[in-house]
Amino acid sequence: MTRFSFHQVDVFTAQPTSGNPLAVVGGADGLSESQMAAFARWTNLSETTFLLRPEDERADYRVRIFTPFGELPFAGHPTLGSCHVWLAAGGVPKGAEIVQECAVGPVRIRRDAGRLFFAAPPLKRAGPAADEERAQAAAALGLAAEAVVAAHWVDNGPGWLALLLRSRADVLAVDPDFAALGDGKIGIVGPWDGARDGAEAQFEVRAFFGPGIEDPVTGSLNAGLAQWLIGAGLAPARYVASQGTALGRRGRVHVLKDGADIWIGGDVAPCVEGTVIL
């Protein structure tokens, strides 16, 4: 057995226990895929990541991302949390931006106003959902057809289908039928009303996937949503999304369009540091 550095951080919040937790194992080149998968099942967090030496000469480090059920090609909050741990351990990027290598390829990360931002990766599937897909998603969430303003694929790896609702209140009122959801991954988004909800954020987001999981704060979903909403003129070039409210969290996702790129950022709060023996 070997000792590896271990960190648990909270992503998309500056206040520990308010965002989305992530476990990070450093210097994990000596671990096999089965060991990584077993440890991710043991942590039982939505994601556990493993920092490795890069194979792509453009990258500063490589990351593998595991859920308790398998490996992901990309995910947002693991990207920001892993980068935070890599930098805190003394990582120095080769260029002005940090480049993370993962299964979807190189992901660019930059620092802005004390936060980390990743460049939203290209969508693997985009465009309006078919009528049958839209109806099935609405039914799984207990929504009447007229409650859904629009339904759009925003898949950058995990497989997200997004539904736009009329308000934050409508988003928070959703009570999904996870059995009907099956293996689907559905995100919902609705605008804040400044007079009623305040000005701290402009959108409310929730993310559902099987088996029976609501994710506290979801970088990949917010990246896909931003590409859709900004591209369609439904959101400004800079906005803040709130996520996790229904779970008692207070996640904040900062979105910025800069030229052709959309950047997804947030704070990262360290919570646990130590050693894991694997």
Rank of each mutant, 00 (worst) to 15 (best):
A151D: 04
Q136W: 13
Q100F: 03
G244I: 11
W192H: 14
I188T: 05
D10M: 02
V85E: 06
V24R: 10
F178R: 08
R196E: 10
G142S: 15
L143I: 12
R3F: 01
V268R: 10
P78E: 12
T48F: 12
P121D: 08
G114S: 12
G266N: 11
V171A: 01
G30C: 05
D261S: 06
D155H: 05
G212P: 09
V240P: 00
L181D: 01
G91V: 08
S32G: 15
L22K: 02
D183A: 15
M1S: 14
W86C: 08
Y61V: 02
G95Q: 14
F203A: 05
G76N: 11
L51N: 02
L221A: 05
E57Q: 13
A150L: 09
P122K: 05
F6V: 12
D258F: 00
G190M: 07
R250W: 13
W42I: 02
Q8E: 08
I188L: 12
G159I: 14
R115H: 00
I264S: 06
A169D: 11
A207N: 06
A260K: 07
A237F: 02
G81M: 04
R206D: 02
E146Y: 07
D112Y: 12
L161K: 03
W228N: 04
V171H: 00
V253M: 13
P68F: 01
G76D: 13
G219W: 01
A129Y: 05
G95V: 03
A226S: 09
L234F: 13
K124Q: 12
P122Y: 00
H77F: 06
E47I: 09
V63P: 07
A139C: 14
A232C: 13
W153D: 03
G274H: 07
L123S: 09
L164M: 13
A162W: 08
V255W: 06
A235V: 07
P121K: 05
T218I: 02
E71C: 11
D112N: 10
F209D: 03
F178K: 04
M36P: 00
K185D: 04
R64E: 03
I277Q: 15
Y61K: 05
G27Q: 01
G244A: 12
P122Q: 07
V171Y: 00
D175C: 14
I109N: 12
A241R: 04
N44K: 06
L278K: 01
V85Y: 02
P68E: 00
F117N: 07
G266R: 14
V92P: 00
T49H: 07
V99T: 12
D170Y: 07
D131F: 14
G259Q: 09
A89F: 00
G259A: 09
R168F: 06
G114T: 11
R41F: 04
V189K: 09
V268C: 10
A162K: 03
P191C: 06
C83M: 11
Q35I: 14
R166E: 14
E101V: 05
E132A: 15
A195D: 13
S167Y: 13
V272M: 12
G90R: 10
W192Y: 15
D112P: 01
